[in-house]
């Protein structure tokens, strides 16, 4: 029941997002028909009128929106002016690499950041703790495109052990699935690390603060009084509580992660949604822009729902109130 209600409100939210994006794009300067004509090398007034009619651009804005909404429900996101392909198939080609990149970045930042923060919390004034704070500060302050470019320069010229461009090696197109997967992983390493750095910094910082607070609570003293080993006290009784705010943070940041992916994909020439929307913006390709925006809103909404459910599973106090 509860989940149904959430899904329903998620759907309403998506419709709202579509409408908002639609109007925002209407406000953008420039005439779409002229942009399309421009890409064909210019056109006469008659041709412009014909383009407007073909794409429905001569109708009132509101009816354009309703037509669009009606199409979206049937998964028809329109046709790209620039690629001359259905937007949905463009997105289908690109969504895989982006999800792979974003999930790897989350995985990396959680798997490295959280343990780092926990270890730092065990000795809040120790050397490791200060290193984590420093690392977090540097990581957080470094722009993604800059660290990405530095990686590209370093691994392209100094130690070329990782590929710095693209998603896979075209010469391996005919190789076995296993070899190709390894190749994709090899390509994934640098973009994923680049995207993970900022979040690694945030999660380690958050884990440290949350863990320090947790370790000073009464139930940790109880756990020690039971005779449990320090390892069990910290990683079972402590971490399970300290991880709760991190789950929330990870869900909330999924959107930021997607926007970070645009930069990373551009720097590393990663063929994902980020690059798609980047090119679409340059080409004024409104259907593609709108399509990618819709898909990313859906992904953000789904991520938030998942983190919410994760939180409910991890914290019994919330489960019962729902």
């Amino acid at each position: 029941m509860n989940i149904l209600r959430r899904v329903f409100s998620g759907l309403l939210l998506i419709i709202g997002v579509i409408a908002l994006n639609f109007f925002l794009l209407q406000l953008a300067p420039g005439d779409t028909a002229e942009a399309i004509a421009g890409s064909m090398g210019g056109a006469s007034e008659e041709l412009l009128a014909e383009i407007r009619q073909t794409y429905g651009l001569d109708k009132p804005v509101l009816s354009q929106l309703f037509i669009y909404l009606g199409d979206v429900i049937t998964f028809d996101l329109g046709t790209s002016y620039f690629y001359n392909q259905p937007v949905s198939s463009l997105i289908a080609q690109r969504i895989g690499p982006t999800i792979l990149l974003v999930l790897s970045a989350i995985f990396l930042s959680l798997c490295i950041g959280v343990p780092l923060g926990v270890m730092a919390a065990e000795k809040p004034s120790g050397g490791l703790s200060y290193s984590v704070t420093l690392l977090a500060l540097v990581g957080y302050a470094t722009p993604v495109f800059w660290s990405g470019l530095m990686f590209v320069i370093f691994f392209a010229s100094v130690i070329p052990i990782f590929p710095v461009q693209g998603f896979e090696d075209i010469s391996l197109r005919k190789a076995s699935f296993f070899v190709r997967s390894l190749d994709v992983l090899h390509h994934l390493i640098l973009p994923a690390i680049t995207l993970a750095i900022i979040y690694l910094a945030q999660y380690s910082r958050m884990a440290r603060a949350s863990m320090i607070e947790t370790l000073s609570s009464d139930y940790i003293r109880t756990a020690r009084a039971k005779g449990l080993s320090e390892l069990t006290v910290v990683y079972k009784h402590g971490l399970r509580n300290a991880v709760l705010p991190i789950i929330t943070l990870a869900g909330l940041q999924f959107g930021n992660l997607l926007s970070g992916a645009i930069l990373v994909e551009t720097v590393f020439n990663w063929p994902g949604l980020g690059r798609l929307i980047f090119d679409a913006i340059l080409a004024r390709d409104y259907p593609t822009i709108l399509g990618v925006l819709i898909i990313s809103s859906v992904m953000v909404i789904v991520a938030n729902m998942l983190s919410d459910m994760g939180y409910r599973l991890a914290d019994p106090r919330i489960l019962k109130q729902g």
């Binding site: 139930y219 709760l244 914290d315």
Partner: peptide
């Protein structure tokens, strides 16, 4: 302990 309200781990 003195604090029964907080001496048990809330997630177990």
């Amino acid at each position: 302990f003195q604090e029964p309200m907080t001496s048990l781990n809330p997630v177990f």
